[in-house]
Structure formats: C-alpha cells, structure tokens
Amino acid sequence: MIPNTFEYHRPKTIPDALAVLTQHGDEARVIAGGHSLIPVMKQRLTDIAHLVDLQDIADLRGISVGDTIRIGAMTTQHALITHAGLSAAVPLLAEAALQIADPQVRYLGTIGGNVANGDPGNDMPGLMMCLDAAFVLSGPTGTRTIAARDFYFGAYSTERAEDEILVAIEMPRPSGGYAYEKQKRKIGDYATAAAAVQMTAVAGRVATASVAMTNLSDVPVWSAAAGAALVGTDCGPVAVNAAVAAMLEDINPGADNRGPVEFKRHVAGVVLGRAIARAFSRL
C-alpha cells in the first residue's frame, strides 16, 4: 500500500507539462485527481518514475456553455454536478456524475482523468460516446481532436499517445430526453451495468437516439444499432426489446465478483430498458 519512489513535477503551463513528458517518455505520467492512479500506484501495479501533477495548469480548467460545450480536462466531477449552466445544458452529465463514487472522490476526481484513464469501469467514457463528445489532445507537435467514439480500443488503451495531454472535452449541446441508469453493489462501486441514453422525438416518435453502456466489455460500448432500433418508434416494448437485442450483440462482459456473464447480460438488458424508458418519459 506504499508506492514506489517517484519524482514529483508541478508545471504551470501545458507546454511545461508536455516538456516533462517528452523528456521522460514512458517513465512519466500525468496525475489529475489521482483517484484512479494513486490506488494502482499504492498496489505497485504500475511503476512511475515521474509524476506530472496538472493541478496548477489554469488552461486545463473552465467550463463554457454555448452551442458547443467545452469542459476543461481538470474540471472535477463535483463541478460537473454543481455548475448551473452545465447541468441545465447537459443534465445527463450531472445525473451520471452523481452516481460516480462518493463526494470525497468527486471533489478530486476529474472528467479528464475519468475519460483518459481507459478503465472500462469508468462511467464518463460511455457517456461521452453517447453525447458524441470529442477529446482535445495537446502533444509535442500540436493539438488534435478525436471523437470519443473513436478513442477507446482496449482496457487502458486509448488513442491518446503517451506524450499527449487531454486538454478539454467538447460536445454539441444535446437536446431531448436523457437518462443515466446504473446498477452497482454499493456507493463507491463501479457499475455492474450502466446505460446512457440521449434521444429526441418528433410527434411522439423517436427522431434520434444515442445509446451507450459501461463496464460490459473491455471498452465502453456505443451501439449504433441499438440507437437505430429506437428511431421512428414510439419506444414501446417491441422497440425497446429490439434496442436491447442490438446492444447485447455489442457487449461482451466478463465474470467478476459482481456476478457471472449470464447475470450481467440480463441486467444489461434491464438497465438499458429502464434508461430508455426514463429518457423517453423526459421528452
């Protein structure tokens, strides 16, 4: 429960942080809230010689709400819940953030750390795919933007290069009904299954639907087919069943202490069905 010795860096600007990363290569890691990183360091599951703390970099903070929403990577999960403009514009964010860990974790844990981490248990990545967010990455050669839906390709492996820093998250302002439904064993637990749904309707019929799920594969799962199954329907049982069936094609849960695969697949369907119903009811 005691990490290896490491060198601690606390740069004030993004270029300074990038310089440390470039200098030390894979020996260096950035730390945001530390609530995913420090536990693995304490168990010595990872060996980091240079820790680059992002706390002092003002350019990684800030939330702006317009037609496009921009959230600085160092925004805490607590801020996602309490920022009035943001929770009005993207209520799905606050609904999900409230189901992450507990207040103590949320005071420190950041949205950037949550999406950059690449842990399939994290709630924000699936949510970002659902909202069609994009991640702004800054590296030694400049800045690029990658869609959340293209970012994840395995547990803890993402499109982000080791010498890049996630600077901000951008997303179009969503509209319509939304829901984040999560089943967990207790406060502070990762999801047994969780579903994010955002949808719009015209005259009682679903016009657009975006559906993603968490902790049911080694990556967050955004199911285009599940969303498509809802479009044009009244979100009745047939449509919901079709969406669930489509999602079940796309997930691939593993057994763990939360339960065996059959249980998770069943609960995934139930949780998704409830999320869809709640999102539709909010239209």
Binding site: Q183, R185, T192, R258, G259, P260, E262, F263, H266, V267
Partner: peptide, 16 residues
C-alpha cells in the same frame, strides 16, 4: 444475498 445471487434465485425459479 448479493445482487447476482438473488437474481439467480429468481432465474432458477423461472421468474425471468
């Protein structure tokens, strides 16, 4: 009686 074991009871009793 955690979630999955309760679920298993229901499942084995054919309640799903």
């Amino acid at each position: 009686h955690d979630h999955w074991r309760i679920w298993r009871i229901a499942n084995q009793l054919g309640l799903h």
